[in-house]
Each structure stands twice: as structure tokens, then as C-alpha cells.
């Protein structure tokens, strides 16, 4: 044998086959969680190393992607959350349930006022709006919008009740809509309607 450190163990092979391909998705979400490229890289690295050490705990055939995201969100919540700056508390309940609908409906005779509005909002603005969400809402929004996890999967990843996932996602959406609308008004794409 010429290679002094043969590495193609069965454990290693199955890990590379099943877990490693999810790194793109993990990194994408890690960026939205930590808001910093360096932190996101560290977070994914830690997640994967931990996953490898606990690989024998993973049940073959079960949802590997959700399992990896669970490890990652746990590390994030325990070790990274305090480091990341969270904006001063936001009064989420303050947002009118039909705020965006009311504003858009009042805009014009357009059939699709939202199309006009969103055409002018850049990806970068959306990124900022997401990053400004409080952590609890951001996690749920990112897992749902970016990763397409079902409510039940998000509940398991974050160890939350199903009802909590629904309400955080609901309020996260409302916050996001409000932020983007305020942005549009500030930049003159839309006019605030006094109600």
C-alpha cells in the first residue's frame, strides 16, 4: 500500500455521498443566519465536522438535509447568535395584518401593482430586509423561503411547536413585506397612503 493514510472507509464514503452535497444549501442559509462570510464558513465547517463525528447517529434513509440543518441551527443558536448583532426589538404585533394589501390596493388602477413595485426592488434590498429580521423570525423565513422546508420539518429542525412555526413565519412575512414597502416609499417607487 503506497498511501500511508487510506481514507476510503465506509463511514467516510457514505458521509461524502449523502452529507457533503448539502454544503451548498447549508452555506447559503448560514450566510443569511450569520450575515458574515467568515462566520458562515466557520458555521458550515463546524456543522459538517460535528455531523461526521455523529454520523453513526444518523438513520440511513431518513432526511439527511433536515438532520444537517438541525445540527447547524443548534450550533448557530448556541454559539453564534450572541455574537451577531440583532436590531433593537421590533414590535411585530404592531403591523396591520392587511398592510401591504391596503397600500397596494390604493396605489393605482393597475391590474398588478405588486409587479411594478417588485420590479424596482433589488435582490440586495431583499437581502438586507431579511438580515434585519429578528433572529427567531429570520431562521424560520430562511428555512421556508430559501430552503423550501415544510412546516413540520422546520418544527423539527428548530425544536418548535408547529403552531409557533406558523406564527413566526406569518409574522416574518409581514415584517418582510413592511420593510420592502417602506423601502419602496423611501425611494419614491410607491406613495404612502394615509389611512
Amino acid at each position: 500500500m503506497t498511501d500511508p493514510q487510506p481514507k476510503s472507509t465506509e463511514k467516510r464514503a457514505s458521509f461524502e455521498r449523502e452529507a457533503v452535497p448539502h454544503m451548498d444549501a447549508l452555506y447559503r442559509t448560514a450566510l443569511r443566519m450569520t450575515k458574515q462570510e467568515n462566520d458562515a464558513e466557520d458555521l458550515v465547517q463546524e456543522t459538517m465536522v460535528k455531523a461526521y463525528r455523529f454520523w453513526d447517529k444518523f438513520e440511513p434513509g431518513s432526511n439527511c438535509r433536515a438532520w444537517l440543518f438541525k445540527i447547524m441551527t443548534n450550533i448557530f443558536i448556541n454559539d453564534y447568535r450572541s455574537k451577531s448583532r440583532t436590531p433593537a426589538s421590533v414590535d411585530v404585533d404592531d403591523i396591520d395584518e392587511n398592510y401591504l394589501y391596503g397600500q397596494l390596493a390604493a396605489q393605482s388602477e393597475d391590474d398588478n401593482p405588486e409587479q411594478r413595485l417588485f420590479a424596482k426592488i433589488f435582490d440586495e434590498d431583499v437581502r438586507k430586509a431579511i438580515e434585519e429580521l429578528p433572529d427567531d423570525f429570520r431562521l424560520v423565513v430562511v428555512l421556508s423561503f430559501l430552503e423550501g422546508f415544510a412546516y413540520q420539518e422546520i418544527a423539527e429542525i428548530l425544536d418548535l411547536q408547529l403552531g409557533t412555526v406558523k406564527s413566526r413565519l406569518h409574522r416574518g412575512r409581514k415584517l418582510l413585506q413592511k420593510r420592502l414597502w417602506d423601502y419602496a416609499v423611501r425611494n419614491g417607487f410607491a406613495k404612502e397612503q394615509s389611512s
Partner: peptide
């Protein structure tokens, strides 16, 4: 939003 979030 979904499209923008993914693009961002």
C-alpha cells in the same frame, strides 16, 4: 419574494 430571496 421567494424568487428574490433565492436570487439574493
Amino acid at each position: 419574494l421567494t424568487e428574490k430571496v433565492k436570487a439574493a
